[in-house]
Design a protein around this nucleic acid. Structure first.
Lengths: 345, 345
DNA sequence: ATGAAAGCGCTAACAT
DNA sequence: ATGTTAGCGCTTTCAT
């Protein structure tokens, strides 16, 4: 590859150029290139041959303007470097690819302002649909109204607004939490901490509910002081566990709504010389990759990220084709992964 | 938020609609909205007010077609769930945001076919520039030629094609490797394994070179059998280390070109009851987040991902404004992070 | 089977 | 300060 040419503003080949060379018209060229009816065998081949030879590249902007769609969907997620979200994106991309859709990925870093900006940008770019997992700052959802006003499908996944008539896909967080806590109880843990997330997000609410249900079912009284709110990051997890130890709270296990804070706690416990899982059990949520890398490996709940992504895109495709005024709620079954951090005896 | 309306294909408000309502013309409305010269104070305010009231949303597709640019750059990376790549993307987004550019993120999963497809899609979408980190399968670069033909800036980062006249940004992998191996030698390790990547990628080549240089400088003879090619993933790392042990190779440390295979090896060694760092030292490369989460924490080399992303976007902005036929090579200084996996005595 | 003409929504050159 | 006109590159009706 020789990069000899000085870069300059180049006028790209257009359909009109091809038409002129072949002594025909843009309409015929357009039809030929898109394999439409009504072009002679010979002409079609001449067009395609020339297009190839001249490196013709269709202008999707122009086509989009004319056709009124872009064959592109926008995906808005809090962050792309979470295995969960990148898994969802992989699922979306897989189905999108089959259906010849492009995917634009945006991350909000959990900022409401960024979320609104990305939304505007995507709407201005005239995407054909938007798939969103909302950020931690998002407590009201008015800014999503304009997506519906624009008349394109809007689909929420994982972090979804509850009690609203919109398409949404989640895993059954409550069941996942219940099962993992049940397992911990089966392992003989009785004083189980819970690191929770903000209650206004259904998934965190449900994880707490699952925790409570499991305790209740086993006749274990709930101790409010064991439920520690807003402990989702690595650092928060360390700090929270440090406080627990400092306060001398009677506790022998932790079920965290987040793998990150579970790990923070786990490392702190190890530093203090507390043996896991013998003296203290730890479980997280989301099946981040590192949970299988740390020692002891961390019990967690897999959220079917790739399956969720596929469902998202399939739901979009259904919406865009059928366009009936209804909406879907899809709930996936999570998979509890029992690992060494809770497996004692 | 009441989502009452049945979704249907809605014609969005256009500049023409606004003009009609205000008994003026599209040009005036366009000028007013973009804060251009030549619109009266009163008219400008009336236009803006109405646009706001009617939820007018400019059609970026139409504007792009007319202006011949999209104010969008495309970013192609092997995968987005590597902390290194997501860090670069964060840097790109930061500068892009300031300069009012949109960013389209594409991942190739190291597939050459995907890389070519994404490239085509971005060119059809008429992005204003493309920033790429090539995939493992990519050994020839002809497909990038068309980016230059299209007359838009092309910038490679991290995984760049060497010996080619294109813009590229990297860290000094050789220096990073040399320093970390020197540190291992200082710690008394003498028989240091190297897990290498494919030699045709400059960054892996250079990491090996740095390793060799450090040995040489300290008068330690190179033993070819200690250099194990294509060991980059977690699984490959485990397998490679297992082979090393099985073969009874005399080795007391590992410098891996990848954090993932370093971790695989580390865990395998621990399983076998080998103490780290006392009996065996381990170092990786890239500063993936998990390297600080595992115990012992893993010595590694930080690649300045965010800084690299900023440089990429800044270089793009310079290119797009100045458009001189030259190209830049930027080399960043990596930072060696000495952690517990190599710190003995 | 092919061509002519209009127009998607916007911007910009050229009037007035 | 505002209007008129043309056109970005494509698709789609309507002719022939």
């Amino acid at each position: 590859m020789v990069m000899k040419e000085r870069r300059k503003t180049v006028r790209q080949i257009t359909i009109k150029d091809l038409a002129a060379i072949l002594h025909t018209t843009p309409s015929t060229v357009s039809r030929a290139l898109r394999d439409e009816e009504g072009v002679g065998e010979v002409m079609r081949n001449r067009v395609k041959e020339l297009a190839r030879k001249m490196n013709y590249r269709p202008n999707a902007v122009a086509a989009g303007l004319r056709k009124g769609n872009s064959h592109t969907v926008g995906v808005i997620v809090p962050r792309i470097n979470r295995d969960f979200f990148s898994g969802v994106i992989a699922g979306i991309e897989e189905i999108a690819y089959e259906a010849q859709y492009n995917v634009i990925i945006c991350q909000t870093h959990d900022s409401l302002k960024k979320e609104e900006q990305h939304l505007d940008t995507l709407l201005r770019a005239r995407v054909d649909g938007i798939l969103v997992s909302i950020g931690l700052e998002t407590k009201h959802f008015d800014h999503f109204e304009k997506v519906l006003q624009a008349g394109i499908p809007l689909i929420f996944f994982d972090r979804v607004p509850e009690e609203m008539s919109v398409n949404r896909i989640r895993v059954d967080d409550r069941a996942g939490a219940r099962e993992v806590v049940q397992h911990m109880i089966d392992m003989g843990y009785r004083n189980i901490l819970h690191f929770a997330g903000p209650d206004y997000l259904a998934l965190y609410h449900d994880r707490k509910e699952g925790y409570l249900e499991a305790l209740e079912k086993n006749g274990i009284p709930v101790r409010e002081e064991l439920i520690i709110p807003n402990s989702l990051t690595f650092e928060e997890g360390q700090k929270a566990m440090e406080n627990v130890l400092k306060q001398g709270l009677r506790a022998d296990a932790l079920f965290s709504a987040s793998d990150y804070s579970a790990l923070g706690a786990l490392l702190l416990l190890q530093e203090k010389g507390i043996r896991i899982p013998e003296e203290f059990g730890v479980a997280g949520f989301s099946n981040e990759k590192f949970t299988s890398y740390v020692r002891p490996s961390l019990t967690t709940v897999d959220q079917q990220s790739k399956v969720m992504g596929k469902h998202c895109m399939e739901l979009f495709l259904r919406e865009v084709n059928e366009n009936n005024g209804s909406f879907s709620k899809i709930m996936l079954r999570p998979e509890v992964l029992l690992r060494d951090s809770t497996r004692r005896r």
